[in-house]
Each structure stands twice: as C-alpha cells, then as structure tokens.
Design a protein around this nucleic acid. Structure first.
Lengths: 344, 344
DNA sequence: CGCCACTTTCAAAGCGCTTTGAAGTGGCGG
DNA sequence: CCGCCACTTCAAAGCGCTTTGAAAGTGGCG
C-alpha cells in the first residue's frame, strides 16, 4: 500500500492525502478525518526512504563509536548514554544510526555521512584534548554536539560535567578524612575528561601542600581488571596508598576486589571514591537499600546526559544557525560506605 | 556534487557513471578508472537516500531494544553484543538502526519497520518463552534472527548458547565440591534463557537426589544490586547457602560484595559460579593476570555472538528463501578462584 | 566491403514521497 | 446574475539514484 494507491482508493489526489496526513492546514477537516481513517484501516505507513529523499532530511542522528585500535572494547557506559538519547530520538521521530568505526576510519566516516546525507547530525563522545573531529565537523557543516569538551576549540556546542570541581572536591574529602597517600586511577589521559579530573586532583593536593605521587597514578581504559591490577600493584608495594580516587565504578569494583582479597575492608582499611555514572545495571545509589550507597562517589547520570545531549542536538538540527549551546553539569557528591578516616 | 554533475563533468551519461562506480561489467576498464578517479577527486559519495529509494534496499539492520516498563534499563551486555554485530555490518556496508521502544510499542514498531521499509532485517534479543515477536515477524515477512530461542515456535533462525547444559555442568561442579546448599540467582524467568538455566540447575540437583530450595532461588533483572540484595537476604538468614550459581557477572559482583562485607572469603567460605558473557570492560578471564580468572564461570563471548548473529542475518537478507539457520554454542567452563570445597 | 555479434554508452522510466503553482469550488456583496 | 475572494483540491515537477531497453560504436570474418 503506497500513497498513490491510498489516494486512488479515496478518490483524492496524492497531494491532498499527503497533506492531510502531515497536518497541513490546506485540507478540510472532514477530508483529513476521512484520509486518516483510511490510512489507519489500510495500515498505511509512508515509505521512509521516499520521504527522506523528497524532504532532504534523514530524520536520523548518527553516533559513531570509535573502536579502540587493538582492543575493540565498548564501554558499557555507552549503553546507558544511548538509552537516554534513544528515548528522546524515539519521541521526536528520529532514528539512531550507530556506526562502529576503527579509529583510523573516523574522518572518512564523517565525511561520508556528510556527503552521503545519511544523517542530519551527530553526537561526538569521549573527545580527546584537542579532538580533530571538531574542526572536521565544523568544516563539513554537519550539526554536532560534543559530550564532553576539548581544551582548545571554542565555538561549538557541548554538554559536560564539571570534572575538575568534582575531583577536587572528592580529593578534599579524602584529605579531610586524614588521607595523604591517595592514588588516582584515571581514564586514558589523552581524553579531555581524564585530564580535567587529574587537574582537579592535583589542585586539591597542591592547595594542602601535598604533592601527587606519580607511583600512585594510573591512566588507562577503565576496565575492572585495570582497577584490580593497579590496586594489586600498589597495595603489594612497600608504600601502599590509603585511599583511591577512581574515574569509573567499574575499575572501582576491581579495586574493591583487590582489597577484599588482601583482607582489607573497604571504607575502613582503605577508602575509595569513584566517579559514578549512575549505570542502570551497576547502580551505586542504594535508594532501596537501607545501608546506603556502596561507594562514596561523584555522581552524574550518564543516561540523563544522553537525553539532554539528544535534545540539544535535535534543536541544533532544527535551527542550525543558532549560537552554540554549552551546558556544564555539576556532580553530586554522595557519601557511601567506601570512605572512612585514615587508619592509624 | 551529485551523479548528474559528475557525469556531465566527465562527458558521460549518468548510467555509465553509476555502473562504473558500482562495478558492473558493461563498462570499459579504462572508462571505469577515469570515472573512479574523478569521483575520488570530487569527493563524490552517492546519496544514500536516493540509492535506497532506487534499489529498494535499506542496507540497514534494525535492533529494537525493549525499554523495560518502569525502569528503562539497558543491560551493558548489549554494548558488547552490538559492538560485535556493528563490526560485521560496517564490513558489509550495512547501517545499524537502533530503536529504543517501550515494551508495549514493540509490535507497532516492527509493523512500521516492515511497512516503512526502513530496515532489511532485524535482530531479536532476549526472547521470552513464547515470544510474540517471532510469529509477528514471520507474518510481516521481515527477515530476522533471534539471539536465544523460544520454547514453542520452531521454524526460524536463531543462535543460542547451550544454557541447560552449561548450568547443569556448573551445578554438578558445585555438587562435586560437596556443596548441597546452592542458591540460583537467575535472570527474569519469563525469558527463555533463564528458564533453561533453571532447568539445567534443577536437572543436576535431581540427578543427585537433591531438591532445589525455593528460598534460595531468585529471578530478576540482573543488576549488581539484585545480586547484592539476594545474597544479603540469604546470608543473613537462618540457613544460608554455601554456594551461588549466578546468571551474569554483574549480580555475581554484588554477591561477592555482600560476602565481603560479612567477612566471607569468596572461593573459601562461599563459592560462586557465574555465567560470563566475556564483557570487554568486566572481563573475568585473567589472561594477563597470573592469578587467573576471579570467577569460576560458564563462559561464552557475547561479542562473538553479536558478530555471528549479524553474519547470519545478512545471509538471511541476501537470500530470504533459504532454510532457517540454527546454531547452538557450547560454553566453556573456566575454573577461577571463586569456588572451593564446601567449608566443613 | 558489408554484415553480424559484441561491447560500450545512452535516454528515459521508474522508486514513493513532498511541494509548487494552478485550477476548481462555493459564498457573498454589488 | 456576475465577479471576486477564500477555501480545497489537483496535476506535475522534482529529490538523486538504478535499471531497462535501445542505440551507437567496434572488430572479426566471409
């Protein structure tokens, strides 16, 4: 069943039927109702391909996931981010096009998307400090929104959390608890968010006249094993830290595991503060649990970020000439059971 | 730059240029090279929308993620599954269309996809025991592949792991270690995979003349907190189990947390076997770690499953009339540090 | 040299929708 | 009863590509 057939069956022109269905005002209400009823009865859905070609809009947003070179890992954080974004797209009638692209093919992928007209806009995730995707997309004239920020470029739309402040505050909390030997288990520091977190960490230490100890600083893909191994190395060393500041709940779990194996009670013998993306399957917030959150954490919902990112991008798509939209979200510092005064 | 312009600039017809670019044989090699060079120089990419309309193929695969009613959670397992599938799609020039749909809108979503012609085929994930999506998709004539199986329908393509065998074997291992009080922390048992796992668990117990204790059986969305709370309830009860059989590494982490808080050493005071999807960020396999895997586990890579599912679906799309493809994967039983003989 | 069988290229007809510019209606004042 | 206007409806022209059926070019061979 296509538009032509539907129009014929109604004794109307394609024009009128199309307009009736798309809510244009030049159609008598009575006619519109008749058309809508017929469309429903016939289970008519306009062919998306044809519509896209005719309107010139893809009604699609692209998310490009860079596949990390050798490892090809996908951060589960993306699942929640995409869930949030996808919800908004669904509501607005947009499709979500997901491309897994090896890092070295990213530029080509974007170029193709633009020339190709297969998407109306894209979301850029996990920007590096001086991310080449930003000038590229500006150059291509493809609307985009960055989740995170870069250090250099300025005039683009982004949504980010206040990473420096979050980690400064978390560090201060550990210092207030008497900890002086604090480890930083960070994400990959070529990524901008990780750089900022480290900055916050160092600022807080500096302010108290402490120096960050390079032996207690790690930077890598934030897996559970990364957390575990980092903690094992440090805890089994001569001079183990008493507290860990961690960039994601997943490595934090690995640290807890390492501590547990060594008979160290988390929140008593060692302290952990982690950034918490409020993952739906690894939720730290013990809302229903009487004992409260497991981890003390700087918290910001990645799912909510996904929603908001999608909203901003759609607004950018609808009105590409508006000035850049930039949003900085504060994190919540939730107190959990993973922190305590430094053991004496 | 479009085909027409490119053709004009070459002094050729659109037909010839199109054929040259698409590898048809009716073009002289010399002409083809000339066309390809010009296309490259002009950064020409055929407009995807127009091509789709003309060919009638969407070159797109749909993944519909059901958003669980109230909670709207997304299992991080999907991230790895999709990474695997997406890799294959990319290689074959297909796009991946991701739709987040509330459970009650699934049918409409599929109907629309079919009428709409926006995808050439779909992947169905996490089927329930008698999943209505299967007859629906058969009815709609949309190629599809099920990751998992159902109990009833038969003639459709699927890829599944041998859940019954996996959980029977895991249970036998625990029994061999002397455990008699074994808890089952399962997924939602309206899902077919969970039903099968429970079956395997019960079969193994029956075979040894043990009965499954309903007090030690749970079934729910496989979050970390679910594992934690289930374990807390059981461990704090009068008659705690000595071993846990778990459907996913995420609740297994919660169980380990509960045990740790109670001063119980995992692998010594209590045993845990979990199914392990080989998630890239929560990898249980201690390949590089000298101490070996943390959990004893029935292991099957969800990412590899995603790859294979994508391959099968593409083959189904290319030749819709072939007989159903069905693949049953065995799991590996990895021995880790989370199991030990029952404490005396 | 002319005819036939290929090979290479082309013009034009879709694909199913939106949208422009024009043509029918009917109501109302003059 | 005519003419003008507002309201509806329509025919046709795209959107940029693929593909069909036909035409033009090429070479081999009698």
């Amino acid at each position: 069943m296509n538009l032509k057939q539907l129009a014929e069956s109604l004794g109307l022109s394609q024009t009128t039927v199309s307009r009736a269905l798309n809510g244009y005002p030049e159609v008598r209400e009575e006619t519109r109702l008749r058309v809508e009823a017929a469309a429903r009865a016939a289970q008519y859905f306009p062919n998306a391909r044809a519509r896209r070609l005719a309107t010139g809009r893809a009604m699609t947003v692209g998310h490009v996931m860079p596949l990390t070179e050798a490892q090809e890992m996908v951060n589960p954080i993306f699942a929640d981010f995409i869930a949030g974004a996808g919800e908004v797209y669904a509501k607005e009638g947009f499709d979500l096009l997901l491309s897994m692209v090896p890092v070295d093919g990213i530029e080509a992928a974007y170029r193709q998307m633009a020339a190709n007209a297969s998407v109306d806009g894209v979301i850029v995730q996990a920007p590096t400090i001086d991310d080449p995707r930003i000038p590229l997309l500006q150059d291509l004239g493809l609307p985009f929104l960055v989740h995170g920020r870069t250090a250099n470029h300025h005039s683009y739309s982004w949504l980010d959390v206040a990473n420096i402040r979050a980690f400064r505050r978390a560090t201060e909390l550990l210092l207030d608890l008497g900890h002086r030997k604090i480890a930083l288990i960070n994400g990959q520091e070529n990524l901008d968010f990780a750089r900022r977190r480290r900055l916050g960490f160092e600022q807080a230490l500096d302010a108290r006249g402490c120096a960050a100890n390079p032996d207690w600083m790690r930077s890598d893909i934030m897996t559970e094993q990364y957390g575990y191994r980092s903690a094992v190395e440090m805890l089994d060393g001569d001079d183990p830290p008493t507290a860990f500041l961690v960039s994601s709940i997943i490595p934090a779990i690995g640290i807890r595991r390492a501590a547990g194996e060594r008979g160290l009670r988390t929140g008593r013998d060692i302290s952990i503060i982690t950034h918490d993306d409020a993952l739906s399957y690894i939720d730290n917030e013990g809302i229903t649990a009487p004992e409260g959150p497991a981890f003390t954490a700087t918290r910001s919902s990645i799912r909510a970020a996904g929603q908001r990112c999608a909203q901003i991008l759609l607004s950018l798509i609808n009105d590409p000439d508006q000035p850049p939209i930039q949003e900085l979200w504060e994190t919540d510092l939730t107190l959990g059971r993973s922190t305590g005064p430094v053991p004496t």
